[in-house]
């Protein structure tokens, strides 16, 4: 997992680029680019979360809050004050990173389930603020009138245009993150996951690393939130509730948390399952969803990204 090979990445990039053309030709999947926009937005969050969980070994059940901070900063500043969306996006990321430092410094001293509860509590508190401060956030009914994005007069006003915008961000973030993983810092992170005491003894500043990764994941979530708000032109608090944080955790677990590809596979899978494929089961949808979770955790403990590895091991036997 240390080396990210170039070939799969190039194939994946090409697939993403040509996909809208394919979808245009096949009526059955005509709405898939729309789903892919959301999958891409979720990928931004899960890449950060994967780095935090799979590499630095820290759990967060509060990522929905950072997603929401990005979305609400963008939404409020553009819809109510008419500011430039790109500047708002940057402000959102700054705001998310400040909050992440304030929350992360005391929280990341906690371990295991205590950290899980602390981040969960933080997420719920932020959700309550979104819900209660109706004057700013529009309350539970949500905020309308968020403008779309444009760049030098070019409007991202169709599904396909937005699709390319979102996936441009995903690739930029993906490549940047791979660089981190393969650098000295990446090795330090994995060392923390294996043993905090040992890595600290060899001179790794454990708490600094943990906070930097936490802030990085918060910034990515905030970016995703801004992109979400400008795509839907609407946000409401229930999008950013604790169940979304749990959904992100499920994405990571299904995809495989020890592999950055896992973050992408998980985001894809959950997006398509919950937004499209499971509709077939109607009332039984949530039972099937739960069963899928159980089956994957039982038979694929390394997540779907672990399948090639499992096949390799199986062939070698």
């Amino acid at each position: 997992m240390l080396q990210i090979r170039k070939l799969p990445l190039i194939v994946f990039a090409l697939l993403i680029v040509v996909f809208p053309w394919i979808a245009r030709g096949v009526p059955a999947i005509a709405n898939y680019p729309d789903l892919m926009v959301f999958a891409g937005i979720y990928c931004l969050i899960t890449i950060g979360l994967s780095l935090l969980m799979g590499y630095a070994g820290q759990i967060s059940l509060g990522q929905a809050a950072f997603f929401g901070i990005g979305a609400y900063v963008s939404a409020i500043l553009t819809a109510k004050y008419g500011m430039n969306p790109w500047i708002c996006m940057a402000i959102g990321m700054v705001a998310a990173s400040i909050v992440a430092v304030l929350v992360g410094v005391p929280s990341l001293k906690l371990r295991g389930h205590y950290l899980a509860m602390a981040t969960l509590a933080f997420g719920i508190i932020v959700f309550i603020i979104f819900n209660e401060e109706g004057e700013w956030t529009g309350g539970p009914d949500g905020l309308i009138g968020i403008p779309g994005l444009n760049l030098f007069g070019f409007q991202f006003n169709s599904v396909e245009k937005y699709y390319y915008l979102v996936w441009f961000f995903v690739f930029a973030v993906f490549l940047f993150t791979i660089n981190i993983i393969q650098s000295r810092d990446g090795r330090a992170l994995r060392a923390i996951h294996v043993s905090e005491a040992a890595s600290s003894a060899t001179g790794v500043n454990v708490s600094r690393y943990k906070i930097v990764v936490f802030v990085y994941s918060a910034i990515l979530a905030s970016l995703a939130g801004s992109l979400y708000a400008h795509y839907l032109n609407f946000i409401n608090p229930s999008t950013f509730d604790l169940f979304f944080s749990i959904k992100l955790l499920i994405m990571i677990a299904l995809g495989g948390m020890h592999d950055i590809w896992g973050a992408i596979i998980g985001a894809f899978l959950i997006t398509f399952l919950s937004f499209e494929w499971l509709h077939f089961f109607e009332e039984f949808e949530i039972i099937v969803y739960g069963l899928i979770l159980l089956v994957v955790t039982i038979f694929l403990p390394q997540g779907l990204a672990g399948i090639p590895h499992m096949i390799k091991n199986w062939l070698r036997r």
Partner: peptide, 29 residues
């Protein structure tokens, strides 16, 4: 009850199923 799903569903009704008219959603948000 989810805003994202509502958005996707209505878009699908309007562009893919090409309905004459849409009724719902149930929630104000």
């Amino acid at each position: 009850g989810d805003a994202t799903k509502t958005n996707l569903a209505v878009k699908k009704l309007m562009t893919q199923d090409k309905v004459c008219v849409v009724i719902g959603p149930s929630l104000s948000g």
